[in-house]
Design a protein around this nucleic acid. Structure first.
Length: 422
DNA sequence: AACTGCGCACCAT
DNA sequence: ATGGTGCGCAGTT
């Protein structure tokens, strides 16, 4: 219950700061939320993390510092102009495209990437990664059950990652000095630090190695969504030991699939990059760290066995979707089918949060909100019909069509096929 | 002291 | 050229 409230508060705050031409950074967001609603910075920070994970809020690195964006707005803006001019059809795609790109771009670069389906897929997969992170979120919010690792504090996790990152980078967080102080309440030296230090700009170099989605341009940008590692970050502390696994899982998702499907591009790095957002920043430096753990930085193909997390399933699903497309082009199906299996089974267990995260990750953060609002969980998703998606969610036709055709339908088909087989 | 408004330079497209 | 972003500073609460 408080979650939605926080979502509102935070998005509102971000909008507010933006309109004031002030950078919507952690400190300001926390402060404003506290002032307006009396919420403690720590809590705000934690909630913000969740929003980032579900991509309701995008964390980006802009001009050397971290900023937070209202995902919904970012999307729209990106091609407003075009919209007006284009035909309905065109508009539609434009919008969609925009959303995708936005997701990845996060920042000022709401890229007008109109590539096409391929991009979509790519984005999707990328996004998925994000989801994977959501680990905690899934557990916490939806609390499927078993997994909830620990009642722990979500927010605590954030700090850790940062610290990690910091270490990796070697530069302490405060360097820039631009920012007076880390965050209001969000654990001192925690997420904020990471951020600030990252902005320093050195990060880029460190990323390259293994980070799947190495950032390519601008600043190094990574984003929770983007970085697989992220999920770790949430639970990093406790998972520390499991760090690798997490990574793996990540890999499992989009990256791997892709790799599997198209091994051609050796490295796979290329693909990732494409998707990559310019400035999305993953809070969790964990990602980096993880990356580091893996010496060769090669895409770890192992699939993570852990089935405990719901995310994983999610990820796979998404991957699957993407993979499916890839298949068309001639990929290998074995792996996919396996994933498919997992995914379909899990679909029934998806919670409302899982569904929302899925669509956010798939490049439809704005529409994901609608799914959440309508309380669509995995079971409901299976029952959705075309008209439900197109008109029942009150979302724009363009995204709705794509969501139905590329995601809902695919998920349903996969799910039911599985059952038939069984 | 904290908050707000905004001109203007930056940056990406 | 266009448009988003946010620094830095002045005004307001």
């Amino acid at each position: 219950m408080s979650e939605s409230k926080y979502r509102e508060w935070i998005l509102d705050t971000i909008d507010s700061l933006r309109s004031r031409k002030a950078r919507p950074d952690l400190e300001r967001i926390c402060r404003m939320v506290r002032r307006r609603h009396g919420s403690e910075p720590d809590r705000t920070c934690a909630e913000l993390e969740k929003l980032i994970q579900e991509q309701t809020v995008l964390k980006v690195n802009y001009k050397g510092s971290i900023s937070y964006r209202n995902a919904a707005k970012v999307q729209r803006r990106s091609r407003k102009k075009d919209d007006g001019t284009l035909t309905t059809a065109a508009r539609r795609s434009a919008v969609e495209e925009a959303s995708h790109s936005d997701l990845s771009n996060g920042d000022s670069a709401f890229g007008p990437v109109d590539q096409d389906e391929e991009d979509l897929e790519a984005d999707t997969s990328m996004a998925m990664d994000t989801d994977s992170n959501a680990d905690e979120e899934g557990a916490d919010e939806s609390r499927d059950g078993q997994d909830g690792p620990s009642p722990g504090s979500t927010y605590e996790d954030a700090p850790v990652p940062c610290a990690t990152v910091r270490a990796a980078v070697s530069a302490p967080c405060s360097p820039s000095g631009t920012r007076p102080r880390p965050g209001p309440g969000c654990s001192p030296g925690s997420g904020l630090d990471c951020v600030s230090f990252q902005k320093a700009g050195e990060r880029p170099s460190s990323l390259p190695p293994s980070s799947p989605r190495a950032l390519t341009h601008n600043d190094w940008a990574y984003h929770s969504a983007v970085c697989p590692a992220e999920r770790q970050h949430p639970g990093m502390q406790r998972d520390k030991a499991v760090t690798k696994p997490a990574i793996l899982s990540v890999t499992t998702s989009p990256g791997p699939l892709k790799n599997n499907v198209k091994k051609e591009d050796a490295g796979g790095k290329v693909e990732d990059n494409g998707l990559t957002s310019d400035q999305l920043v993953p809070d969790y430096a964990a990602g980096l760290e993880e990356t580091k753990n893996v010496p060769d930085g090669r895409p770890q193909t192992l699939s993570l066995p852990s089935d405990n997390c719901t995310f994983k399933n999610k990820i796979e699903i998404s991957s699957f979707t993407a993979a499916e497309d890839s298949l068309l082009n001639g990929g290998k199906g074995d792996e996919i089918s396996v994933k498919k299996e997992k995914m379909s089974q899990n679909l029934l267990q998806w919670t409302v949060a899982d569904v929302a995260s899925y669509f956010s990750a798939a490049g439809f953060p704005e529409q994901a909100v609608a799914f959440r609002t309508q309380e669509i969980d995995g079971k409901s998703l299976l029952l959705m019909q075309r008209s439900d998606v197109l008109t029942g969610l009150s979302i724009r036709l363009g995204p709705a069509l794509k969501i139905y055709e590329r995601h809902v339908k695919v998920l349903q088909r996969t799910h039911f096929l599985e059952y038939e087989d069984l």
